[in-house]
Design a protein around this nucleic acid. Sequence first.
DNA 1: AATTATAGTGCAATGGAAGTGCATTAACTT
DNA 2: AAGTTAATGCACTTCCATTGCACTATAATT
Lengths: 138, 138
Amino acid sequence: MNEIDKKLLDKEVRPTAMRTLVYQQLAKQNTAVALTDIELAFTKADRTTLYRTVKTFEEKGIVHQIDDGTGISKYALCEPGCNCEIENDLHLHFHCSNCDKTVCLTEHKIPQISLPDGYVAEDVNLVVKGICSDCSGS
Amino acid sequence: MNEIDKKLLDKEVRPTAMRTLVYQQLAKQNTAVALTDIELAFTKADRTTLYRTVKTFEEKGIVHQIDDGTGISKYALCEPGCNCEIENDLHLHFHCSNCDKTVCLTEHKIPQISLPDGYVAEDVNLVVKGICSDCSGS
DNA sequence: AATTATAGTGCAATGGAAGTGCATTAACTT
DNA sequence: AAGTTAATGCACTTCCATTGCACTATAATT
């Protein structure tokens, strides 16, 4: 059994051929990808399957969903350092308005936020928009 | 001429009847509203008109658009303290996962974010999700 | 090994929101 | 009042997310 299947099993996801391939594909990326991107990579598979595969991954904590403000959900593998479910360990995301790519800045943690009385925080989402290093040419 | 029309003119927006009404409606809210909400408040007006009205307001700095992660754009009037266009003066938003309302926490500014080399920030969006004061019952 | 149960996949269709083109109407200008 | 420009309403399109149902593959049971 390969590494990926072990990881899937570890997260209580049955490692089907499709799921292994999708995981592989996600692991290749250095940016967060939209469902459409995955679709393009697997022209033979159905969109619904990919959709549900990613949803399953998300529920089981294998990927995290990113809302970068484009209106299109992006997904990225949860890295070892990415404990999405643990508060105060959330990283921020950067969306480049030039190349339209979204990257996880895993090492950049979101600072503690103070809220007014009565507000209970459960999740924090921080997206910075601008020009990424590839596009700024520096 | 009433107060609202003065404000619209001040922002270089011609104060039509529709626009004045939409402004009025937005001023009534204490939460950010979706286009659908505005639509429901003006059943006689066309959705496109409301859509374009809000777009115009946004372009002219009368309202700001909020992406609270639900995938539906919300809008809220820019308050005197809300200088959306000026960087580092962005406030954060809170989305209640119980009542599904989004509020502007105008007094809570977003802290300065440090980015890796080559990244240029143009806009920052910070949304906290959780339970609002109305729903937490405290 | 055959049978049953469960989970995964593919196809088709729906729904919701955003956005566009064009004709009509209202509002300003001279 | 005539002409120009902006605003509005209607119809339509597009895009992504999501669901229902049938079919297939996988795992469990006998």
